[in-house]
């Protein structure tokens, strides 16, 4: 959708929800078309921006190797993509991942797959870690 149309939608109040209530109660839902308009109106978030949202459960850089959660660091790109798309389609029962994955576009899933595939498959915290250089 064009940005102008999107802004028109906004000013027409179509997207005006009481977001605080929605956030707390899971109230009124946006339509698929509204979501698509929002996604299309902005550049895609980077793979890192998307993937760093996973760290609270899967560890920093996806590198938590404990009994409860599968690590994402070093995961093969194709495997990540296939799994996320299966979750998104609710292809099999999961505890929570189908409710996590349904929001992502194909391109976003691929960007996250690239990010995790590039991480060292080694338990965080890594003593050698120094931080990235610009």
């Amino acid at each position: 959708m064009k940005r102008t149309l999107f802004l028109a939608l906004l000013s027409a109040g179509l997207l005006s929800l009481n977001a605080q209530a929605v956030a707390a109660e899971g109230g009124a839902k946006l339509t698929d078309a509204q979501i698509k308009a929002i996604i299309d109106a902005q550049p895609m978030p980077t793979g890192k921006m998307l993937a760093d949202n996973c760290s609270a459960c899967h560890g920093t850089l996806g590198a938590e190797f404990n009994e409860a959660m599968p690590p994402l660091a070093g995961m093969k790109k194709e495997n990540f993509i296939k799994l996320m798309k299966d979750y998104r389609a609710n292809a099999f029962p999961t505890i929570v991942m189908h409710d996590v994955a349904y929001v992502f576009t194909d391109a976003e899933i691929e960007a996250m797959a690239d990010y995790f595939a590039a991480q060292k498959a080694e338990e965080w915290t890594r003593p050698d870690f120094k931080g990235a250089h610009e």
């Binding site: 997207l15 509204q34 979501i35 109106a41 409710d99």
Partner: peptide, 25 residues
């Protein structure tokens, strides 16, 4: 019990700049 909420940047000013998608278990 789980709640999954996603906040996307809209570029607008309504709803303080973010849309909300929520599901609960």
């Amino acid at each position: 019990m789980t709640i999954t909420a996603t906040f996307r940047y809209t570029g607008g000013i309504k709803d303080k700049g973010f849309s909300t998608q929520v599901r609960t278990s």
